[in-house]
Design a protein around this nucleic acid. Structure first.
Lengths: 118, 118
DNA sequence: ATCTTACGAAACCATTCGGTTGCACTTGAC
DNA sequence: GTCAAGTGCAACCGAATGGTTTCGTAAGAT
């Protein structure tokens, strides 16, 4: 068997970030470790599941590089890779343009109504 | 064990918008109808699936109010509810604050390095 | 050296998911 | 009225998902 700390424990497998954030527990994990790095045990105390279940979520989050492990003794501190969150923001950008355009159009309509009124 | 509901409290919705956008086909549907309202038949021509499969995706998107049907004769035109997309943007907001803060800190570091260099 | 703690892996299970096929209903054209 | 077109729905199926339990291994404590 492989020694514990020196081999990649999580296979580098491409995961869909949108599928990663689909699960509410994983979003909660993201919210927690956004504040500070946490171990699987510490994380598990916040949920109604076992540590192993949290570990599986962390595996998925790590596979899509949303989360990064830091090995410290026999503990592993997981922290958020905030850069990866930008991918969601970039995907959202095209739709943000749409709703901003609609706001401008609405502003125009309101301006016209106001000028007609006054 | 921590008191449970503090983090997962908001997951009582019938359909989760994050789960809705997790599927790549549904994201493609969103992208298509963002441009113009489309019928299930017209949508299905863009994918390698049956019309019924697209219909099931549209049902999920409609249930979480990401998509709105408009009945016109025997056809149904589905259009994007752009307002709903803002929910994702609002969720992202907290993390956007984090990465913007890091950028500012990085800028500070770079400024210090530059001043020391010059 | 031995025990405890922290962790991931594996095996297993129930549920959900995405897809297909077949069917029923409604609308519009003939 | 009859027929074709456009839909949604139910039943079914294989695969994926999220969870648990059991285990093996590494690191720290006694």
């Amino acid at each position: 068997m492989q020694p514990f700390g020196c081999i990649l424990m999580f296979e580098v497998m491409k995961r869909d970030i949108f599928q990663a954030i689909a699960d509410p527990t994983r979003r909660a994990i993201i919210a927690l470790i956004a504040l500070q790095a946490m171990t699987p045990n510490a994380l598990a105390e916040n949920f109604h599941t076992t540590r192993q279940a949290v570990s599986k979520h962390l595996r998925i989050l790590t596979e899509c590089e949303l989360v990064k492990p830091e090995y410290r003794g026999r503990e592993i501190y997981y922290s958020l890779e905030i850069e990866k969150m930008k991918e969601i923001d970039e995907w959202l950008e095209q739709y943000r343009q749409i709703w901003e355009t609609r706001y401008e159009q609405l502003d125009e309509v309101l301006a016209v109504l106001k000028s007609q009124k006054g």
